[in-house]
Simulated assay, not measured.
Amino acid sequence: MNFDLPEETREMCDMVVRFASRDLQTSDTFDADDFRRRWQLAGKQGIVGASVPSAYGGSGLDAVATAAVMEALGYGCRDTGFAFSAAAHLFAAVMPIVEFGTEEQKHRLLPGLSSGEHIAAHCVTEPEAGSNALQLQTRATRSGEHYLLNGSKCFTTNAPVADVFVVQAATTPGGGFFGLTTFLVAAGTPGLTVGQRYDKLGLRGSPMADVYFDQCAVPVTDVLDGEGSGAGIFATSMRWERTCLFAAYLGAMKRVLDSTIDHVRQREQFGTPIGGFQSVSHRVVDMMARHESARLMLYKAAQGLADGRDDEIGPALAKIMVSEAAVQLGLDAVQLRGALGVLGGEAETLLRDAVPSRILSGTNEIQKNNAARALGLGSRAAARR
């Protein structure tokens, strides 16, 4: 086992950290024009198309190198919401086109999505279908050379700024795994409406909104991988998202851990730096152990993804480990800053941004279900016994 990234990857990550620290900072107030400006800059650096093959305008990185880029983005960009949006765009929306799209779809869509010219959103969650993704109420009915989409989606990352929507809809209601189909829908298509941007606890730099479909006509040529393949596409995209997206949290955690160490070295009480108190130093070591453990788990999952392994357990465990570590590290960072921790700053920002990580991309409880099912511990196996 080699735990060191190749020198070329390390140099690339150093560049991303410098770029993000210099060009991707923003205020806590969301501004759509500024978001688009920073997105285009990130596109020029190859970030929003990191794992897209170079033949379609991307950087052509494998899953390990892509995770490293996202980790560097999370470290350099204090706006974790922006990093989250970039990762959701790439892994939940763009990679399905890379892996399942026709050559026409790839050549038409991927260059703009990789360069930063266009932004993608993945529409799957519904008011009555969050964890239970196979029970979607959004319907797609074939009508000649089009499908008519009707229904609504909620909690859609990037919806207020998206140019392309990757939409999951039921073509065979009640059809289970083969009842869903994936559609590529351009912004501005008649019948597609985006609601108001949400105000959120955390990830405030990531725009999110509801999306509505009312007789929205989508050409048959914009179906991804054929009717009935939506659940398989969704499962593949989630392996990318649950692994590489959460690398951005590793970077944010490391940034806050570094600043926390600096703080406890400099802050004095009772005539000595508080880092010299055992209760403080042990808490810092616990923070480091959580971060390092989660990082190892994530990169193991990324290596499996790069090797093409059909592994459901690795991404699930990585998502759980990183998100739980991020929440606890945020709590510790706030505690070690005392009253300063509850004021505006990167410690309380990390904590706010970390709380959604246990819910988005499939709750941690669902990840445990996924891992248990892969181990043969599902309800059907129990019933047979």
Rank of each mutant, 00 (worst) to 15 (best):
residue 2 N to S: 12
residue 8 E to N: 13
residue 17 V to M: 09
residue 30 F to E: 10
residue 38 R to W: 07
residue 43 G to R: 01
residue 43 G to C: 08
residue 46 G to Q: 06
residue 48 V to C: 12
residue 50 A to Q: 06
residue 61 L to K: 08
residue 80 T to A: 03
residue 82 F to D: 02
residue 84 F to I: 09
residue 90 L to Q: 08
residue 91 F to W: 07
residue 92 A to D: 14
residue 102 T to Y: 01
residue 104 E to C: 01
residue 105 Q to C: 00
residue 109 L to F: 06
residue 113 L to E: 07
residue 114 S to A: 15
residue 120 A to W: 06
residue 121 A to F: 08
residue 126 E to I: 01
residue 129 A to M: 14
residue 135 Q to W: 15
residue 142 R to Q: 10
residue 144 G to P: 12
residue 144 G to A: 10
residue 148 L to A: 08
residue 149 L to A: 01
residue 156 T to L: 12
residue 181 T to N: 04
residue 188 G to N: 13
residue 194 V to R: 10
residue 194 V to N: 05
residue 198 Y to H: 12
residue 202 G to R: 07
residue 202 G to L: 07
residue 202 G to E: 06
residue 206 S to K: 08
residue 220 V to H: 02
residue 225 D to W: 06
residue 229 S to F: 12
residue 236 T to R: 15
residue 237 S to E: 11
residue 239 R to F: 07
residue 241 E to D: 15
residue 241 E to K: 12
residue 244 C to P: 02
residue 249 Y to T: 02
residue 249 Y to G: 03
residue 250 L to I: 15
residue 251 G to F: 07
residue 271 G to Q: 15
residue 274 I to Q: 04
residue 281 S to H: 09
residue 286 D to T: 12
residue 294 A to H: 05
residue 299 Y to V: 02
residue 300 K to D: 03
residue 307 D to M: 04
residue 321 M to N: 11
residue 323 S to E: 04
residue 323 S to C: 05
residue 325 A to G: 05
residue 326 A to H: 04
residue 331 L to M: 11
residue 333 A to G: 01
residue 343 L to I: 07
residue 346 E to T: 00
residue 350 L to V: 10
residue 351 L to S: 00
residue 352 R to H: 04
residue 356 P to L: 11
residue 366 I to A: 04
residue 369 N to K: 02
residue 371 A to Y: 01
residue 375 L to S: 08
residue 380 R to S: 06
residue 380 R to C: 02
residue 380 R to V: 06
residue 382 A to C: 04
